[in-house]
């Protein structure tokens, strides 16, 4: 048998492999060009962009926690026009598949950014950030209600023909219902999960360890919850699910695929090991070969629940 086919298709977008650099964890991609062949990634989800440049929160912006980290960066960014003018040409020259993560304080801002990106050369898809827990306005607020999701996704859908992937927050009671609302509003796929709203306190000083008081938890600590949510959403919608949350090894990639994700994003682990990408890819190839699969797509949603009752009875 030849080398297994790692390519995946999401909303008409053909990715060379299912490994995507997660937004907020890979800068604008160009920062990593010295260490990572950007064209070898399935895609890069660049740092979230508002219409205008944003300063972000005061430091400290991150704190490490058991098997994870909290961040409250506050979406520091150059703004969409500067991105298109200054970063996108470089990404295009490096043959990167670029997914642009967009944020807005209003529905109209989301739509305006989407229009600007539609006219730019080299944008493969738009990821709609309705899930950042670290800003007061927009973002998370939209992603926490069915109506908010519908408004934002609907407005972006009208503004662009590019594939649109709302990025969902896990900080809701029923994430699958949010995914369905996104699908009904015209989403081509959903990506999840963003970070879990969390907090850490220095007990000696009794001060919060982030200047923003609260932040988003990422890293291996959240992985089992993220897997569960990807599983729930992929059962609830017909569109593809892009899964993420604490992926740090090829086994983790496989777990998300089997849970129902068509592709995955890797964020925090890239901080620890910027050379993680070929390890993930090789691990997936090994697994596919070992299990006799010709293509990675054959794994998606293949979680086997049949042994469930037997296992419970015998335990």
């Amino acid at each position: 048998m030849g080398r297994p086919d790692l390519s995946v298709e999401i909303a008409g977008l053909r990715l060379a492999n299912p490994l995507i650099a997660a937004s907020g964890c890979f800068g604008y991609g160009v920062e990593y060009a010295d260490l990572v062949d950007l064209s070898a990634l399935g895609a890069i989800a660049v740092k979230g962009l508002f219409l205008e440049a944003r300063e972000g929160h005061a430091p400290p912006r991150i704190v490490e926690t058991p098997s994870g980290m909290l961040n409250a960066i506050g979406l520091q960014g150059v703004g969409v026009r500067a991105f298109v003018a200054d970063k996108l040409p470089d990404l295009r020259a490096r043959r990167a598949v670029v997914i642009v993560n967009i944020c807005g304080s209003t529905v109209e801002e989301y739509a305006e950014i989407a229009r600007i990106l539609s006219d730019a050369d080299g944008v493969a898809a738009i990821e709609i950030n309705i899930s950042c827990p670290n800003i007061d306005e927009g973002g998370h607020t939209f992603g926490c209600s069915l109506a908010g999701v519908q408004d934002v996704v609907g407005a972006v859908r009208k503004a662009t023909t590019l594939p649109i992937f709302p990025k969902l927050t896990p900080n809701v009671t029923d994430v699958a219902a949010i995914a369905v609302a996104a699908e009904n509003a015209g989403a081509d796929a959903v990506s999840l999960v963003n970070t879990f709203l969390a907090m850490a306190i220095d007990v000696e000083t009794r001060r919060p360890r982030l200047s923003n008081v609260v932040g988003g938890l990422s890293g291996p600590a959240i992985r089992p919850i993220a897997v569960r949510m990807v599983y729930e959403c992929s059962n609830a919608v017909r569109i593809p699910v892009i899964g993420m949350g604490g992926i740090a090894s090829a086994r983790d990639v496989l777990e998300f695929l089997i849970a129902g994700a068509s592709a995955v994003q890797v964020g925090t682990a890239n901080f620890e090991d910027p050379g993680i990408w070929p390890k993930l890819r090789d691990g997936v190839v090994d697994y596919l070969t070992r299990h006799g699969h010709a293509a990675v797509g054959e794994l998606v949603g293949t979680v086997d629940l049949s042994a469930r009752e037997t296992a419970w009875v015998s335990s």
Binding site: Y32, L35, K47, P60, R61, V63, I73
Partner: peptide, 16 residues
């Protein structure tokens, strides 16, 4: 400053 990645990816080590 506190640093996450050292490569410019995480935006945690910012200085005003």
């Amino acid at each position: 400053p506190v640093m996450g990645c050292g490569l410019g990816g995480c935006y945690s080590c910012v200085v005003r």
